[in-house]
Design a protein around this nucleic acid. Structure first.
Length: 574
DNA sequence: GCCGTTTTCGGCCCGACTGTTTTCAGTCG
């Protein structure tokens, strides 16, 4: 799979071109746009080329004859000569250097030409010897800021999980609201779009007391240092290791600002192109016709004036949602309140932290009407997996509990290990006794693609599996997805009426948004599951729902958005 | 370098902030 490699090279070419006199800024933008296209493709680009040749590459958005040739050159030779030439001219670790706040490609090249700075180690030396402040166009302040940028980069963990960031962002917003200094405060940016990882937090507030709001913000307990502080924009570094911007917005501009700061950048570019076509100008201050401001009271108003339907923030990634909104075909996405149950939970009887009864009352408190308890099976020794006898006894306990309750139901299930050879580690008879069988890969992650595909497809083709858990096995920041042909897995799921899981654990979110989009093309259903191992984990469901929404999923495709009486027919096996 | 319900040529999103400058370039979102 060359997608990421090629996308990285195109991005670096863009940066190098941006300092080259011969290239226009539009050529730079062309490489960036192509990099984005290639980086977010689901299919390996070499497969696209193998199937459809150069024409198929040129059918991709932002890729024309020249860039198609560059891609082909990479597929055939592993090199791109244009990149090699640029790299010879500028032998700089551009990616690392430009990841420093305040350092772009141009400054990096100046530092290289004047001081021979090629990487961050060189930069640190140049800073400590105060060579930078003596350069034309730089001063002491620039040197200070670069020093700060380097130390922030070293502290930074880069992007963070949405699940770690969202609760903090909500805490800050809630503190602002409670202060009485703001009439409104909201989260914008990638956090509002529910991206699985977040690079920084954007918060907007409505207030006439700019200074007091900024004072309050910079003194919050979550703040570690102040990066910059002004009346309209203040940036701080939070203790969790991420930066947070607070902007105080004029009431007139609030909806435009919210639209603008929610992004994504590429979505906004598309929306503004439409604004121009319709004779408007759109920026963070409002919608304008000439110099006259058009009255807009909400994001809905803005999109409507442009002939578009409003769309949920989760869709705003320039993946075709703009065209959909123009055609007034934006789907009604699944919502957290649509979830009636949770089909993947654990108890203390294996590796969970709470008892069956505790999990049930937590699920009720979360507004659910049913859960499936799906403990691990015996192969997973680390999780104290249960055997046939263990499940039989446990299910009797569930029966007794169900009899004692009304208005809530516990389904009997297991998260069954799919062994190396594609078989299950429980007898068929035991599996038959369950309402739900979740199949999961927990071992031998490094098989070849064909072996792993065969393993999972075989397990699905037994017809015994209700749900395929975390279908790619990835753990964000920890483990790459195992190699598997998702197309073949989805085909098998379609054949066998097997539901695909959207696992809501913040570092899994598996299937991911783009994989959900890919899977949606098949006639398959999805289950948004918490995989709760303790009572507090039902909180995770909102991340799964956010991911489902980013994959444009509607509630009719989600099995646990169905009432329990309908659920049985959907989950019918064999 | 890409792209087309105004175009196969002439466009390509937009504005703030910052530092180093006397009018602007670079960076960011």
């Amino acid at each position: 799979m060359f997608n990421k490699l090629i996308a990285d090279i195109f991005n670096e070419i863009a940066e190098l071109l941006s300092v080259d006199d011969k290239a226009s800024k539009f050529e730079v933008r062309a490489y960036q746009k192509a990099a984005l296209t290639i980086g977010t493709l689901q299919e390996p680009i070499e497969d696209i080329y193998a199937k459809g040749g150069k024409d198929a590459l040129q059918d991709l958005p932002g890729i024309g004859p020249t860039l198609a040739d560059r891609i082909i050159e990479y597929i055939k030779t592993g090199r791109i000569s244009k990149y090699d030439e640029l790299k010879k001219k500028y032998p700089i670790d551009m990616k690392a250097l430009t990841s420093i706040e305040g350092m772009g490609a141009k400054k990096a090249v100046i530092l290289y030409k004047k001081l021979g700075v090629k990487d961050i180690a060189d930069l640190k030396k140049a800073i400590s010897s105060h060579e930078i402040s003596r350069l034309e166009g730089f001063g002491e302040r620039s040197e200070e800021l670069l020093a700060k940028g380097v130390s922030m980069l070293e502290q930074s963990k880069g992007r963070m999980l949405l699940g770690d960031v969202l609760p903090i962002a909500e805490r800050i917003v809630s503190a602002l609201r409670k202060s009485g200094l703001v009439s409104n405060a909201v989260i914008a940016g990638s956090t509002r779009r529910m991206r699985e990882t977040v690079g920084d937090i954007d918060i907007l507030a409505l207030s006439s007391k700019q200074e007091s709001v900024m004072d309050l913000f910079t003194k919050m307990p979550d703040v570690s240092t102040i990066v910059s502080k002004g009346p309209t924009k203040t940036t701080v570094w939070l203790k969790i290791g991420i930066s947070c911007d607070l902007r105080v917005i004029d009431p007139k501009s609030f909806s435009a600002a919210l639209q603008y700061f929610t992004g994504s950048k590429d979505h906004n570019i598309e929306v503004r192109k439409i604004a121009i076509k319709k004779g408007y100008k759109l920026n963070e201050y409002g919608l304008f016709r000439g110099t006259a401001s058009v009255n807009v009271r909400s994001e809905e108003d803005i999109y409507a004036k442009l002939g578009m339907q409003w769309m949920p923030p989760e869709m705003r990634e320039d993946r075709g949602e703009v065209q959909l909104a123009l055609a007034h075909k934006v789907p009604k996405l699944v919502e957290l309140s649509d979830l009636k149950g949770d089909l993947h939970t654990h108890t203390k009887d294996t590796d969970g932290a709470n008892t069956l009864e505790e999990m049930v009352s937590a699920a009720k408190a979360a507004g659910l009407g049913y859960i499936a308890v799906t403990n691990h099976t015996k192969s997973l020794r680390v999780a104290h997996g249960m055997d046939e006898k263990g499940f039989k006894e446990f299910f009797e306990k569930i029966d007794r509990l169900n009899e004692s309750m009304s208005g809530f139901r516990v389904l009997k299930g297991a998260e069954v290990d799919i062994r190396e050879d594609g078989s299950f580690d429980l007898t068929e008879r035991s599996l038959q006794s369950m309402d739900i069988v979740i199949g999961a890969v927990h071992s031998h992650f490094s098989m070849s693609e064909s072996e792993m595909t065969a393993r999972i497809v075989k397990a699905i083709d037994t017809g015994m599996m209700s749900i395929l858990a975390h279908p790619t096995g990835r753990v964000i920041f920890e483990r790459d997805p195992y190699k598997v042909s998702l197309e073949k897995v989805f085909e098998a799921a379609e054949r066998n009426n097997t539901v695909l899981e959207i696992n809501s654990v913040p570092n899994r979110l598996d299937l991911s948004d783009t994989n959900i989009m890919l899977a949606s093309k098949y006639r398959v259903m999805f289950a948004i599951d918490s995989d709760a191992h303790r009572t507090s984990h039902f909180e995770f469901l909102r991340y799964g729902v956010g991911t489902a929404r980013r994959g444009w999923l509607t509630k009719d495709r989600v099995v646990n958005a169905q009432r329990i009486d309908k659920l049985y027919s959907v989950l019918k096996r064999g």
